[in-house]
């Protein structure tokens, strides 16, 4: 069973709640994904709070754990304040920490990320940092107090899947016992299965499900792929080879000439 900080979860899929065609479809996707953790965000309230109250109620009714994010924050100060405000609203110490460093790629500002992680950990937060696959940054995040890391596999929302499988493999090998969640860039269930086969502990998705033609069915497809990838990893897959190896034994083969 996967443990994220002190919480044990069965499902290895974390689902974002943005971009779904309707609240009903979001709810159905959450149910069919069997996820136990959804990500949510905070934004400026302009209408007195009634619309956001409906979303807040929906999330509570789903009965899942909430992982608030600091999406859209471009500075340490913004990210830290947003995290504090998220804790006030959602009453959890969990925070998906994003400090965005680049407008086009939404690449994390890893320097700001480490600084914000240090500040938030000191304030009692349990930080889930959205980071790159850089090992040095990862080490700094651990020094800052993070006990879960969430490397990207491609830019957010790009649906490209793992663009650098070797880096993901190295990252996994370097932190064999740390919960690692691939966050961002997954497009298809086969991508999710691929990173799970590499030994990742879980996958965080949003656009790949919400943007599908049938989000609820895609949520279930991802759940199955993640389970299959996890099982395949535990079954120890073969490594690729350059040359053919006959699968049918040649001993006792008839000789006709």
């Amino acid at each position: 069973m996967l443990k994220l900080y002190d919480i044990a979860v069965q499902s290895r899929l974390l689902l974002g709640t943005a971009r779904f065609p309707s609240p009903a479809i979001l709810a159905e996707a959450v149910r069919r994904s069997k996820t136990e953790i959804v990500t949510v965000s905070l934004r400026r309230e302009t209408s007195g709070g009634k619309a956001s109250g409906a979303f807040f109620d929906l999330i509570r009714e789903l009965g899942v754990r909430v992982l608030p994010n600091t999406a859209g924050c471009h500075s340490v100060q913004e990210a830290v304040l947003t995290a504090k405000m998220a804790r006030e609203v959602f009453r959890t110490d969990w925070i998906k920490l994003e400090v965005i460093g680049h407008h086009d790629t939404l690449q994390p500002d890893v320097f700001g990320l480490v600084e914000a992680a240090r500040i938030l950990t000191a304030e009692g937060f349990q930080v889930f940092p959205y980071t790159t696959d850089d090992l040095v940054v990862a080490e700094k995040l651990l020094e800052a107090g993070c006990r879960v890391l969430m490397p990207w596999c491609a830019p957010i929302g790009s649906a490209m899947g793992p663009v650098n499988p070797m880096a993901l493999r190295t990252f996994r090998a370097h932190f064999p016992d740390l919960p690692l969640i691939v966050d961002a860039g997954i497009g298809r269930p086969s991508h999710a299965a691929q990173v799970m086969e590499l030994g990742y502990d879980a996958v965080l998705l949003n656009t790949a499900v919400a943007g599908a033609g049938d989000p609820a069915s895609m949520a279930e497809a991802f759940a199955l792929a993640i389970e299959a990838g996890r099982l395949a990893h535990s079954a120890v897959p073969l490594e690729p080879r350059d040359m053919a190896v006959p699968s049918t034994p040649v001993i006792g083969k008839a000789v006709f000439s």
């Binding site: 974002g16 965000s41 905070l42 709070g49 608030p68 929302g157």
Partner: peptide
């Protein structure tokens, strides 16, 4: 003054 409320997020 900042007044924030929950919304959908990834």
């Amino acid at each position: 003054i900042e007044i924030l409320s929950p919304m959908q997020g990834g």
